[in-house]
Simulated assay, not measured.
Amino acid sequence: MSALKKYLGDVGEVREGHALDARALEAFLGRAVKGFAGPLGIRQFAGGQSNPTYLITTPDRAYVLRRKPFGQLLASAHQIDREFRVMQALGQAGFPVPETLAYCADEDVIGAPFYVMAHIEGRIFSDCTMPDLKCAERAAAFDSANETLARLHSFDLAALDLEDFGRPGNYFARQIARWSKQYDASRTDDVPEMEKLIAWLPGAIPPDEETRLIHGDYSFHNLLFHPREPRVVGVLDWELSTTGHPLGDLTYHAMEWYRPAGSDPRGTLDGADLAALGVPTLEAYVARYCERAGRAPIERLSFYQAYNLFRVAAIVQGIVARARAGTAASAEAGEQAPRVRAYAAAAL
């Protein structure tokens, strides 16, 4: 696994097999984006395991482009049109997302559908302990993440014109079925722990039902903080967003506290001196969210933890499969295989 870095968002040369047609892209942006003027430069972000992401620069402004991967794709994956739609709706409602500028479904432009958004300056913390922050700053950063998530879950779907963004009800049952199917489709090795989870999870779902707009990958690696202040200025990577149970979002975000040690380069708070860090306990963090969201305390937290560990294991398995097929977006995707078993084992 790669050495831990303080921040994510490094950019470098466009990787082999990921090149874009600069001339065609510049012509499209000139037509579609108000005020765009070339010449443009193209570099690629080091992250973006799923959808390749590029920094587009001009003499006057910077943009970010996300596209579908080239090659054969799993059904229901990489729906960047959904990313664009939800970000556009949330931006109009004043929620902190990058400004969406143009969507292109025409594969003839750069070889795959893509969208372009404004580039926002800020920090994406690679290490969930945020080692370069002072104690009070770290506490404020965690609280800002908590407040931002509670605010996301407060939106009325009809007011956002997103009532059809996902199916209501049976969220966990549908998600377990979806990720079980995608795990099977991308299977490369036998992982008995995953088979146990696939068999156990459907019968363990709590009975309560609730439908809200959820991010689907709400974690510090998708939160852009102000360059100097401990507050969220942008929520990124909406590929997995849908309508569903808000506790799926919350307890996925809460994996910072229960992520298995050594399973992820972002680290874990498991075993950390939280008081010294200025970070609340998991129980206090969840209680603060429930207070902001106006909901009762959460029962059966262990189910939600197991579900999220299983879900992440299935997502990582998809990255492993794309790495072996040569279509993964990240240069480090091939290193992911051991994480599948680590997450699945921790869920049992």
Score class of each variant (00 low, 15 high):
193 E>P: 03
78 H>C: 01
239 E>D: 14
338 P>V: 11
57 T>E: 10
112 A>Q: 15
235 V>W: 00
274 L>R: 04
299 E>I: 00
19 A>L: 13
97 V>A: 01
196 K>F: 07
11 V>F: 07
103 Y>C: 02
197 L>G: 01
248 G>T: 15
151 R>S: 13
61 R>H: 15
293 A>N: 00
308 N>I: 02
157 L>T: 12
128 C>P: 08
52 P>Q: 06
98 P>Y: 02
200 W>L: 11
124 I>L: 09
266 R>M: 10
272 A>Q: 02
171 Y>E: 10
123 R>N: 15
190 D>K: 08
259 R>V: 14
206 P>R: 08
274 L>S: 02
258 Y>V: 01
266 R>D: 10
146 N>T: 12
161 D>F: 08
285 Y>C: 00
228 R>W: 10
148 T>V: 14
96 P>C: 03
179 W>F: 07
7 Y>E: 11
236 L>S: 01
230 P>N: 05
156 D>F: 11
89 A>M: 03
17 G>D: 09
309 L>K: 08
337 A>K: 15
227 P>Y: 06
310 F>C: 05
332 E>Q: 14
116 V>I: 13
34 K>V: 08
293 A>D: 01
15 R>A: 15
71 G>Q: 05
153 H>N: 07
9 G>A: 07
65 L>V: 05
262 G>M: 09
137 E>N: 12
315 I>M: 00
135 C>A: 15
269 L>V: 03
248 G>C: 14
16 E>W: 08
230 P>L: 03
34 K>Q: 09
243 T>M: 14
106 D>W: 04
221 H>V: 12
204 A>V: 02
9 G>S: 07
256 E>P: 13
27 A>Y: 14
228 R>Q: 12
5 K>G: 11
64 V>Q: 10
58 T>R: 08
331 A>T: 07
84 F>I: 07
40 L>T: 06
221 H>P: 14
42 I>W: 08
222 N>H: 05
21 D>R: 07
188 T>V: 12
97 V>H: 00
70 F>S: 06
75 A>F: 09
209 E>P: 13
220 F>E: 10
177 A>T: 04
6 K>H: 15
294 G>H: 04
63 Y>L: 11
83 E>Y: 04
325 A>P: 07
68 K>G: 00
61 R>T: 15
86 V>G: 05
127 D>A: 10
18 H>I: 06
